[in-house]
């Protein structure tokens, strides 16, 4: 059951949903999020630096994503910031996935051959 607090965030803009999905796999820094989004979308969604950080800013401000305490390894740039999903972010991501799944099911049913 989805509560009102979660549904008030839906529908999520596409880029924000992609970012949330990328973070379901664990904590990531900005460039890794971009790579994950590109990979999961088959190269269809390509985000530039400001598009990505604009989405992250909105997600952080909305409490769906937070900056992680994790610091980069010794071989990586120490200034990198890592991000992770909050509990609310995970719930919203799940609710959006359910919403889209329902939409896809409806589309498939309606588009079956023989249905006007």
């Amino acid at each position: 059951m989805i509560d009102d607090d979660v549904t008030s965030y839906l529908p999520l803009p596409q880029t924000q949903f992609h970012v949330l999905v990328a973070l379901t796999a664990g904590e990531r820094h900005g460039y890794a999020i971009m790579g994950a989004v590109e990979e999961s979308s088959g190269g269809v969604v390509r985000m530039g630096p400001a598009t990505l950080y604009g989405s992250l800013k909105r997600l952080v401000d909305a409490g769906l994503v937070e900056e992680s305490d994790r610091r980069p390894g010794a071989d990586d740039d120490q200034r990198r910031r890592y991000y992770r999903l909050t509990g609310l972010g995970r719930e919203v991501c799940r609710a959006e996935a359910d919403r889209l799944a329902h939409l896809v099911t409806t589309a498939r049913i309606n588009l079956r051959p023989g249905i006007a």
Binding site: G30, Y31, M34, G48, P49, T51, Y53
Partner: peptide, 26 residues
């Protein structure tokens, strides 16, 4: 973060590829 991201893009995709992505985004 933006500058770091641009730096990574240029390293991964070359000067033209990196600037193309960052410039269009900008």
């Amino acid at each position: 973060d933006l500058v770091q991201h641009h730096h990574d893009l240029v390293e991964d995709r070359g000067l033209v590829g990196g600037w193309l992505r960052s410039g269009l985004d900008l």
